[in-house]
């Protein structure tokens, strides 16, 4: 039986871990390699780097971060942010990433999923979906941090991504993201019941019981969190100890 995974996510810009401070500015807060090693020591089952570098030149810096992380972190590493082409996939995997996550580029060009899965295997293609609830109860796909509504049904898009060869869905609810009131269980259930591939829950966790809830009340295979771990409100170890108490299968470090 597969363990439920706990995945810390790090936002990386120009080779540094960054965090928005009260939505006014972005502050550099550390070396991604050191942060990833710390999460590994806490028992993270996977590490996600989200590259928020705006410039094209910054990509080389990100690849160097991936290369250095792969030399000292021995759990799967997923890299996303700004992935647009098969060459981006290839460069990122060659640098040492195990999986590549693709978001807007796949919405605009779904065939990218199929091409990447054919060449590199579906196990390394993670399709990230940002979605929010519409007044009619459906979920719609948004891009650019929630600013652009693509008018695509999120559940249908997840099914299409699976059919094209996605190995996993990383589902972020823009309604719960940053609110810390818990994961969007309804949205997760809608997507989990529509696909067979693993779904990673993202957006909204702020307390221990949110992790228990997401695994007891939805079919999510993994839960992702960024600031909660970053600001040391909880450690990966504390989350897993709580899950284990509830008989949810986890890998203890």
């Amino acid at each position: 039986m597969l363990a439920k995974r706990i995945i810390p996510c790090l936002d990386v810009r120009e080779g540094k871990v960054v965090k928005g401070i009260n939505f006014v500015g972005i502050k550099e807060v550390g070396d991604p390699v050191e942060c990833a090693a710390e999460y590994d020591a806490q028992g993270a089952d996977e590490i996600v780097f989200l590259d928020i570098t705006a410039s094209h030149e910054g990509r080389g810096t990100m690849l160097d971060v991936v290369r250095r992380t792969a030399q000292k972190v021995f759990v799967p590493l997923t890299v996303g942010g700004g992935i647009r082409t098969i060459d981006d996939f290839r460069d990122t995997l060659r640098a040492g990433a195990d999986k590549v996550s693709v978001n807007s580029a796949a919405v605009k060009n779904p065939q990218l999923i199929r091409e990447a899965a054919d060449i590199f295997g579906c196990q390394c293609v993670v399709v990230a979906i940002d979605a929010k609830k519409c007044p009619d109860g459906h979920y719609t796909v948004v891009i650019n941090g929630g600013r652009i509504d693509m008018g695509i049904d999120a559940v249908e898009w997840a099914k299409q991504a699976e059919a094209l060869g996605a190995g996993e869905i990383l589902l972020t609810s823009m309604d719960t993201d940053g609110v810390k009131g818990g994961f969007d269980l309804d949205m997760l259930n809608a997507v989990c019941s529509a696909v067979k591939i693993p779904v990673i829950a993202s957006g909204g966790c702020g307390a221990l019981e949110h992790f228990t809830d997401v695994f007891e009340k939805t079919g999510a295979s993994a839960a992702l969190a960024a600031s909660l771990f970053h600001y040391k409100e909880l450690t990966v170890g504390e989350v897993k100890a709580e899950l284990k108490k509830h008989d949810i299968p986890v890998r203890m470090a």
């Binding site: 363990a3 995974r5 693993p198 295979s221």
Partner: peptide
Amino acid sequence: LSIPHIGWNK
């Protein structure tokens, strides 16, 4: 169960 078998198993 989905194939491939991906993840941490005991």
